[in-house]
């Protein structure tokens, strides 16, 4: 049920190549351009952060694996621009063609608004009336199968490596937008969000050290009480 982005615990990637401490923020000029274009496209208001994450996740596995980070961003943004009807595939085929002003042009991010938009952020906490089931110290078990329950193959934030595992709630984060719905236009459906600690030895066949832990932020829908 997993997608290619769900790579936590995967074998075979080799050592981490550590960049020099003074490496530039954007190694190529187009990296910064790709980031800025993605943010400016999102500012048109046709999708949310969960939709945009899912757009990158559902790139074909061969594309996801061969694309560099910012290539994934630009591919995801392009796909969303077409899927939401902002652009057509024909528009993409003829970049230099003359085009009339778009009906969404009034929403275009202006230089004057940039600093304000970035510093305002997009908080994900919402009030909700879903009853909080857990508190720090409670034992919980994650869903046996990671995956979206509303759209087959849809967006979810329970990684496969942590499916069906028993852990302990260590923190309550408040009530947050539920990505499994939000990514698919099914409402924000906020619900309680918890940090849950898992013993490394409960997640991996071979743990590096029995005392080590992995902590994930998990929505209440991913959890059930564990004895």
């Amino acid at each position: 049920m997993s997608r290619v982005h769900d790579m936590g615990g995967r074998f075979g990637d080799g050592p981490v190549e550590v960049d020099a401490a003074d490496a530039p923020v954007f190694k190529e000029d187009w990296h910064g351009r790709a980031l800025a274009l993605t943010l400016a496209s999102a500012a048109l208001g046709k999708w949310n952060i969960d939709t945009s994450r899912h757009a990158r996740e559902r790139l074909a596995p061969q594309d996801y694996s061969r694309f560099s980070y910012y290539e994934k961003w630009i591919a995801g943004a392009t796909d969303l621009l077409v899927e939401t009807g902002v652009l057509t595939p024909e528009d993409l085929d003829t970049p230099e063609a003359e085009a009339p002003r778009h009906e969404l042009a009034d929403r275009a991010l202006t230089p004057e608004r940039v600093a304000r938009v970035l510093s305002a952020g997009g908080p994900a906490d919402r009030t909700c009336d879903v009853v909080k089931m857990f508190k720090p110290g409670d034992k919980v078990r994650t869903l046996a199968k990671a995956g979206n329950r509303f759209v087959d193959g849809g967006h979810t934030r329970l990684p496969s490596y942590a499916a069906g595992a028993v852990g302990e709630v260590v923190r309550f984060h408040g009530t947050h937008v539920f990505p499994d719905r939000s990514a698919h236009g099914l409402g924000e459906a906020p619900e309680p969000l918890y940090a849950v600690a898992f013993a490394a030895s409960d997640l991996w066949v071979v743990a590096e050290d029995d005392g080590d832990e992995v902590i994930l932020d998990l929505w209440q829908s991913y959890l059930e009480p564990a004895p």
Partner: peptide, 12 residues
């Protein structure tokens, strides 16, 4: 020393 790895799966 015990290691705690935080996997940022939400907006925290």
């Amino acid at each position: 020393t015990k290691v705690r790895v935080w996997d940022s799966t939400a907006e925290v």
